[in-house]
């Protein structure tokens, strides 16, 4: 029975593929779009690709081919995209911000920059969040900050690694409040959340998607989120903005092409994402996979990158000496 369903679904998807080019406008630049991924298959970027590309394929009438080139937190893939890929619109990449910019802000050996990109669209943003162990004495974000005020530099805060969004949001909070935390880097959001659950650190600056299940089950407590407004999923958790700390941060993923692709191709790609923004089914699937949609296209996406580049560049210059000390 299950095999039969499987067979039917294969036939259905095959016929959908064959039918789609006939009913929809073809992508002008190429018959196939190669997507460079800077991370391993199965990770966050791949999750985005698996969600988005089946829809894009139908909208643009082209096949998507993923190429995984992990290493140097994405920098190998992005260097390849900007310096060595054809600028015909046939090659694009999943761009993770702020990692995309902090890579070259922090390391002189990484030579690409966002000026060598044609930003197409941001798709998801996983908002930043502060979580503490369930048995933590800190009930509110004020409790946590007060502890840091009483004992400067001893409250331990986990982050996903130097250069990641959580690392930078910790610094932004420090600068806004004048407090000093003990920043403990982990290799990714998962280990940082685990250490918080075990009470090994006082708090973890993390991302919603990684900790939502643990918050629901009560093994972690959320103190604050780094969004403009309170989240629908966590209506009782305040934003830092409510506490007069202007931090809106998260880990975002979208698509970019190399600079100098044909304008027609750029417009077609942007139009496809604009269509996705209205697609109810797409939104439902994203919600099911706990992905927080944040579709920002074209010039707006470019502005989003530029703002981040400025902001994080300034922060890094201020803390560079202290971190590499």
């Amino acid at each position: 029975m299950k095999m039969k369903i499987l067979a039917v679904s294969i036939i259905a998807s095959v016929s959908a593929v064959m039918a789609s080019p006939m009913v929809l406008a073809d992508y002008s630049a190429s018959n196939e779009i190669k997507v460079l991924q800077g991370f391993k298959p199965g990770g966050g970027s791949d999750t985005l690709a698996q969600l988005t590309q089946p829809y894009l394929k139908e909208l643009l009438g082209v096949d998507f081919v993923n190429e995984y080139i992990p290493g140097a937190t994405g920098a190998i893939a992005w260097t390849r995209l900007t310096k060595q890929s054809p600028k015909d619109g046939g090659t694009i990449s999943i761009t993770n911000t702020p990692m995309l910019m902090t890579n070259y802000i922090m390391n002189d050996s990484i030579t690409y920059s966002i000026d060598e990109l044609t930003p197409i669209a941001n798709v998801v943003t996983d908002p930043g969040i502060i979580v503490v162990p369930s048995d933590s004495p800190y009930q509110t974000v004020e409790d946590l900050f007060q502890a840091a005020e009483e004992n400067p530099g001893t409250v331990t805060i986990g982050n996903s690694g130097v250069g990641g969004d959580d690392f930078f949001s910790t610094i932004i909070v420090e600068q806004a409040t004048g407090l000093a935390f003990k920043k403990v880097p982990f290799q990714g959001d998962g280990p940082s959340a685990t250490a918080a659950m075990g009470g090994k650190i006082d708090a973890s600056f993390n991302n919603l998607g990684n900790v939502y299940g643990h918050i629901q089950s009560g093994s972690l407590r959320a103190l604050a989120v780094f969004t403009k407004e309170r989240l629908e999923m966590l209506p009782d958790v305040p934003t830092l903005r409510e506490k007069d700390i202007d931090v809106v941060a998260g880990s975002s993923r979208g698509y970019s092409a190399p600079a100098g692709i044909p304008d027609e191709a750029r417009q077609e790609l942007i139009a496809a994402f604009e269509t996705l923004k209205q697609d109810q089914e797409f939104q439902a699937v994203a919600r099911e996979r706990a992905l927080n949609l944040d579709i920002v296209t074209g010039d707006d996406y470019q502005q989003m990158m530029k703002d981040m580049e400025d902001q994080y560049g300034v922060i890094w210059n201020e803390v560079k000496e202290e971190v590499s000390g």
Partner: peptide, 19 residues
């Protein structure tokens, strides 16, 4: 990459060795 400083060590500026 050094975990706590984010600086590459013994990579000779080659980004293939950063990870």
């Amino acid at each position: 990459m050094d975990l706590t400083t984010g600086t590459p060590r013994m990579a000779f500026g080659n980004i293939n060795l950063f990870s």
